[in-house]
Nucleic acid binder design. Structure first.
Lengths: 231, 231
DNA sequence: TCGTCAACTTGACGGCGTCAACCTAGAAGC
DNA sequence: GCTTCTAGGTTGACGCCGTCAAGTTGACGA
């Protein structure tokens, strides 16, 4: 902790950058909050004086953002894995949504800092949306989703981001026991919603009538699915 | 600003509480960020010394929460208005969703502070969910939605919260021009998704097959709606 | 008129982000 | 081997922050 770092050799000044990032990440994960991420604490853990941080980061904000961005590569890998895990693009989309949620809940502090604050995380958000658009586009291509992929992706992204961000930001809220199941519900509902919204007219039939149609549709798909399963 | 406040009379000490809240709310709205809400600035605007704030608020966090909670009554009124504006519960649910989004975007700072931070806003979140459950329950009663109202409400809430929280937290993101339209998409998709998710089997048919079913369903509802419109 | 106590103020403390000025070790030139 | 120079840091200070213990003030009841 308080052990002074041996000064880097000439030309290796950038080594400190990585050590600072590691120290900051440790602090963030250990304490579970970015409030513990003071420049003094980070520098102390890196075995370096406080202003040395400014040799590699413009200000505290830049350090925090850089730390949180470190985990963002994982998201790309998780998405790729989820997308490749299954031939059917609609099922793959669902897995992507679940993978996204897992990623966010695995890195709650980083997710909150980058996604729930103004003036940070624009790049991270762009990456999220880009991945979403990719998974959605495959569904549009096969016709199960209809509409502009951007718009659809934003709607799906909103749903899953909303769910996990509530979990993260309101940890003491009496959520249902099985969060996994709730995420599943949200992802499925968002997917179905995306499939429906551009197929239904703007002027909806009255609820009772719509309910009947929905019942009928649901029953037909269910029986056909069961029949196929028996084959 | 720097004009000293005339000391309240005996028994009227609580008057200061309201004046502090007003000063803080002004600062919050004027600057657009809670970072400007320092105790010194608030006390100064209220014409009072800094530690006087502690006569009415346990700490800064309590002050900030109290300030942000001030606008939350509006949400109840907006929900009630949206729910009463239309007989059909499913349409009313959509209007509730849009009202929720409007509320959040009208009070971005308050919404962010209470909903996107840990250890604050539990009551606010509970209020949001409660209103949602009310609007959803009416839909479940008429059969257009199916399933547990709590679960459904959480899914719908997630979707609209996700959308507005992204808008609020990422103001510099290149969002589509018409945010209103995007909110509309999200609300509609979430509503349809909620209607579908418990009607469809867990094992979905392959995408291509599902796409056909969806097309057929959409076409039937559309033609029937048009026919009804001509009548 | 006077004591009392509610309604504040004073002054200080430690911690924070940030910055200008200073040091210092090790590679380069002679 | 000695000097010089500069990359790679450190020192010490500034102003702002939230918070608190102790002091002050002035309206009201007796």
């Amino acid at each position: 902790m308080a052990t002074r770092r041996i000064r880097a050799r000439r030309g290796d000044g950038a080594l400190l950058r990585d050590e600072i990032l590691c120290a900051a990440e440790q602090l963030l994960v250990e304490t579970g909050t970015e409030d513990a991420l003071t420049l003094r604490a980070v520098a102390g853990r890196a075995g370096v004086s406080t202003p040395s941080v400014y040799l590699h980061f413009a200000d505290k904000e830049a350090l925090v953002e850089a730390v949180c961005l470190r985990v963002w590569d994982e998201l790309g890998a998780l998405f790729a894995e989820a997308a490749a895990s299954c031939d059917d693009p609609f099922l793959a989309l669902g897995r992507c949504g679940r993978a996204y949620a897992r990623f966010a809940l695995d890195h709650p502090v980083q997710y909150r800092v980058l996604m729930m604050r103004p003036s940070t995380g624009e790049d991270a958000a762009a990456a999220c949306l880009r991945h979403m658009v990719g998974a959605v586009a495959a569904c549009v291509e096969t016709g199960v989703l209809r509409g502009e992929p951007e718009k659809l992706a934003l709607a799906l992204w909103s749903a899953v981001h909303g769910c996990v961000s509530l979990f993260i930001a309101q940890p003491s809220f009496p959520w249902p026991d099985d969060r996994e199941a709730l995420i599943d519900t949200v992802v499925r509902a968002a997917g179905f919603g995306g499939a429906m919204y551009s197929r239904l007219p703007r002027d909806l039939p009255p609820s009772a009538e719509l309910a009947e149609e929905l019942d009928e549709f649901g029953a037909r798909v269910t029986t056909r699915t069961r029949a196929r399963a028996k084959r």
